[in-house]
Write a protein that binds this DNA or RNA. Sequence first.
DNA 1: ATGAAAGCGCTAACAA
DNA 2: TTGTTAGCGCTTTCAT
Lengths: 358, 358
Amino acid sequence: MTQKARSREERGTGRAGDGVRRTTGNVTLSDVARLAGVSIATASKALNGRDQVRAETRERVLDAAERLSFRPNPLARGLLAGATGTVGLLTGDLEGRFSLPILMGAEDAFGAGELSVFLCDARGDAIRERHHVRALLDRRVDGLIVVGSSTDPRPSLGRDLPVPVVYAYAPSEDPADLSFVPDNVAAGRMAVEHLLACGRTRIAHIAGDAGYAATTDRIAGIAAALAEAGLEPAAPCRTGAWSESWGRAGTAMLLDQGAEPDGLVCGNDQLARGALDSLRDRGLRVPDDVAVVGFDNWQVMTEGCRPMLTSLDMNLEQLGRDAATALAQAIADGGTLAGGVRAQPARLVVRGSSVPLT
Amino acid sequence: MTQKARSREERGTGRAGDGVRRTTGNVTLSDVARLAGVSIATASKALNGRDQVRAETRERVLDAAERLSFRPNPLARGLLAGATGTVGLLTGDLEGRFSLPILMGAEDAFGAGELSVFLCDARGDAIRERHHVRALLDRRVDGLIVVGSSTDPRPSLGRDLPVPVVYAYAPSEDPADLSFVPDNVAAGRMAVEHLLACGRTRIAHIAGDAGYAATTDRIAGIAAALAEAGLEPAAPCRTGAWSESWGRAGTAMLLDQGAEPDGLVCGNDQLARGALDSLRDRGLRVPDDVAVVGFDNWQVMTEGCRPMLTSLDMNLEQLGRDAATALAQAIADGGTLAGGVRAQPARLVVRGSSVPLT
DNA sequence: ATGAAAGCGCTAACAA
DNA sequence: TTGTTAGCGCTTTCAT
């Protein structure tokens, strides 16, 4: 008795009542062929829409397949074709909240088609990542999508992989790779432009962790937009951490040193919430005295506070969708992928924390 | 020419029979055998540690495999063995923040072993779920783990699947299935017991959305613990939504109606933050006048506010790990799984919002 | 239009 | 100890 047969039988007896014949996954093409009274080859052709089958025969085969609820075995198919209809999704941190929307977008884009997603979490560990890449390649995935945990460039998987690869959120260090990243510079500009549109002119910025590209990019965009408007920042930009507590502290410092901003850009939504607290502590009203804008549009943050927060949504789900779509395209096309970095524009979501001055 | 392109070309020309079909990463066992000067079967035995090979021969085969960086093709192996070393992870909402830690835990537990995870998001849609289950089964996964988006029981996938299934977070409606859920009743008790230990006796509860089992379970636990202590609630329990805004409103109502709690249990961390706001608005100090406890221990919530929030961590990552481990076990055992519901105990994390009365 | 046969890469009886 | 043979389920020539 083969292992296969044994395992089936065990499963069969292991669960439901024994009269129940479990057909799922056990019906083979040859069963269908036999029932339809044709050869295996013909059955295959009929099922796959090859045009060398008489209509009536095809009908019979289709019918037989239906009756047996035949499902082709992708392993067998893959073994032959070399393609598995599978992509690997290598994530840096399942923990972080940025990989999630991206993951959703990707899953979404694939889900529509015929591709399934293998999930691997490398925990930011290079060793583990290598291990997973190998495992994925062993499983003959048709492509790879690498999701980073920050927007800082990350090492490339290399140019000589047997399948196409796209990078999302964290771009590859190799410009020959294709990367999808949020456009933080443009988002920084948008934040300032929105405040300007609200009639604010004394604009300050409380930034996040200085060690992140997201921070420096946003700072750059903000500085550029201010410069173009011919304005000086209302206070020197301060970096700190990605926390509410730094948002409070940074804002307090700013005010202590005599800055009188009427517009405040905060490196992310948590910082913005912290800022809201400090502003209120000082008796400053938002948005009347100071308009506040955050980044990321993290809903529980932006909509949990009073007033609700205006924020720049980085459109991560769309980013994930785009990355996945590009990968699917490359797979379909035969594996060639133009390199470069595609920047995903942000989207301004206006809420109560910023209104035009009247 | 990329390797991928080369491999396609070969495929395109069909199996012209003659020749060198060498795609990097596609070294086959027969290549190894040839280089080692043995038969394919012997090579297989040697590589798989069968004890019918002379040590020296094995050495030679291993060496050849090494030199060619041979990686066995799991598809071929799976085709033969019927097992794929793969499990399907069906999630209700990738969006929600509860599936994440569970997913991490599961990925973690599997990652150690040899199982890979297929990710599918059904978006809470039954049709899509069916589709995914079929796709997963087609791919011959060895098991399924179903992650829900709330703790409310969900329909079973059925008893007659060809592979073992475990449910996480949302239990299956069928008691014959194996489900892993957080123990919200016990967590409710723990919240009250903690407040009692802090010397609080006038305890009130602002609950979350009444439509969730998590809400009613926590309410039940809280009520039971109060009853055991011989106490009445300081105010009737109110349900609302899982939002900060309801936390604020609910607390305000409570105080407006003359309740004077010295301990407040909030249905989750967001509610607790809202409560903090309202208490401060009324000039009540936390934790001196009122101690506050939340649920979920969502770090950005609990550590973003002043004072930081005491909360009950539902240990979801552990829950995911347990579910995955049980599934792996069942797969190894041959598919049998004891039914039932396993409750994951919560863990109290004390922070500034609750201290003993002095 | 149909079928016989040859594999895809691997494992495991069974011979030698 | 080693090799031969027979598949796993499927697709694709290449006859018929």
